[in-house]
Structures are given as C-alpha cells and as structure tokens.
Design a protein around this nucleic acid. Structure first.
Lengths: 109, 109
DNA sequence: TGACTATATGTCATATCTGACATATAGTCT
DNA sequence: AGACTATATGTCAGATATGACATATAGTCA
C-alpha cells in the first residue's frame, strides 16, 4: 500500500494498525477495510439506482441522512453490520452480498 | 419460521422485530441472522481444524475465551465485524467468506 | 478421588457505534 | 439574488459491543 492510499483511509478515520514501517498493513486488516469499502460503494450504487435520496433511504431504515452519507463515504465509524443490513434493506440478495465481498479487492481511491 | 426456532434464537438474545403475529419475520432480518450464524459455525469449524483452543485463539486475536465461546454459540451480542475479522485471522479468504454468506440459508438448530 | 483442560454463561466497565442535530457546500430553478 | 434539494462533515448523548473476570459444567487422566 502506498502512502497516498493510506492517507485517504486515515482521513476517513481509519486507525491502521501499528506497523513499524508505516506502510505495511496486515493482509487481514486490508481485506476487512476493502470489504467495507466495497459494500459502501454498492450501497450508494443501489440507492441511486432506486432513485432514493439519502434522506429518503435513511427514513426507510430508521437512520439519518448524515449516517447514510457516512456509510457511502466509507467512514470508519460505520460497522459491517450496518452496511449489510442496509444493503439487505435495499433488496440485495445473499448472492449479491457474497459477490461484493469476494470481489472487494479493488482500488481505494 | 416455527416457534421452536424462534425460541432458540431468543434464548441467544436475539430481539426479533415487532411482527404482530409473532411468527412472521422480515426476510432481511432472517437473512442477516442466518449469515451471522453461518459465520459462527464456520469459525468454530476452522478453529477446531487448526487444533486451537478457544483460549488460544482468543489470545491470537486479543480477545477472551468467553467472547470466542459467545461467537461460536451464535450469541446476539457478537457483531458481524468481529465474526469476519476473526475468520480472516483464521486465514479465511474473501472467496470463502463469500461462500459462507451465500450459502447461509440453513437450519438454525 | 483430585488435578487439569476445554467450553459455557453471566456480569460489568469501558470502548465503539448510532441516530440526531447543526451547519456547510454545491447544484438547480425562477 | 433567494429558495429549494441533495449531500457532506463535525459533534454528542445514548445505545450497543467488547474484553475481562468469575464461575459453572463436563471430559480426561493418574
């Protein structure tokens, strides 16, 4: 991972391990973050596809516009639980969720 | 869902919606719980396969034996985040995680 | 029997997540 | 310009999850 990428993650509030050389990051840590970011991207795509505003969607899932924005921005304060429950609420199937997770190895930018 | 199944879930601390007839449960709610239970089963299977005790595994992931027991028991106090991070720590790949999620539609008992 | 190991279960202080709110930014329309 | 809509971002009180601990249960071995 280059430092640009790292900076982007840290700007979103991610606390990235205590790796000494400041660049290394465990594969597991990275995989987990990438999964969340993938779910976050899919969430936004699905919401837009349904022509829902963040506020409208928030109402549906008893959340708030600001939290939906954070979910879609890949904010570190958002749990996997919330991302998955939100995707399910948008009609995502297990199969689709599985695909998002399997294919999550993507660029962060 | 029959009431036996529901009782088993409620015994583990799951708060199952407010469905009026006490049997109906949203597909999304059910899918989410089943995913967690599937991950929980896989976690136990992988740990045993590696001949690790709950205490030994807990040490590895900076957790505690009791929390590992709860993870494997499908306790409602365990988050998806923790389950997934734990599986990654046991060496599960994205592909495997995806499979567990896709195939999570299984019996609860 | 007792010692040891593994797992289960309940509790709790603290850490983390969440919805809500305020406010900022940006685009569109009249 | 001002009004309106959508999204972003920071903060925070309350809710939920967490590791740690105590303790229970059950199996094995000598």
């Amino acid at each position: 991972m280059n430092s640009t990428k790292r900076n982007k993650l840290e700007a979103k509030g991610w606390k990235l391990g205590d790796a000494q050389d400041f660049l290394a990051l465990s594969d597991e840590e990275m995989a987990f973050i990438e999964m969340k970011l993938a779910l976050s991207r899919e969430l936004k795509a699905r919401r837009l596809h349904k022509h829902l505003s963040q506020a409208g969607f928030a109402r549906r899932i008893n959340s708030s516009q600001s939290r939906v924005a954070k979910m879609e921005a890949g904010d570190a304060s958002v749990s996997m639980d919330l991302l998955i429950r939100s995707l399910l609420a948008l009609g995502a199937s297990r199969k689709e969720l599985a695909r998002f997770i399997e294919q999550s190895k993507r660029r962060v930018a």
